[in-house]
């Protein structure tokens, strides 16, 4: 994976909640923002009961949203 990108893996869970595990090279500076962008996209797509693993290499918001959308659509 190149810089400016983010790898998203999604899987169903039994809790019915959205669970997120984030690794990022900028977690100290932007961890909260990245998490929020991911959660916003999940909410926008009306998905629940999902575990998300994200490995970020400095992606901007538009890339994060696009990658989350792709991963969820592929999983559906």
């Amino acid at each position: 994976m190149e810089s400016n990108d983010i790898l998203i893996m999604v899987m169903p869970n039994e809790s019915g909640k959205v669970e997120l595990e984030l690794e990022s090279i900028v977690i100290q500076q932007f961890g909260d923002v990245i998490e929020q962008v991911i959660l916003d996209k999940v909410k926008e797509m009306n998905v629940e009961g999902i575990t998300i693993k994200a490995q970020d290499k400095g992606a901007l918001d538009y890339t994060i949203g696009a990658r989350v959308e792709t991963a969820i659509k592929r999983a559906m």
């Binding site: 901007l60 918001d61 538009y62 890339t63 949203g65 696009a66 990658r67 959308e69 792709t70 659509k73 592929r74």
Partner: peptide, 15 residues
């Protein structure tokens, strides 16, 4: 193809 299509769509909307 699917991920590129979504990424380009978001790029045009944002950048």
């Amino acid at each position: 193809k699917d991920s590129a299509r979504i990424l380009v769509r978001e790029a045009i909307k944002t950048i």
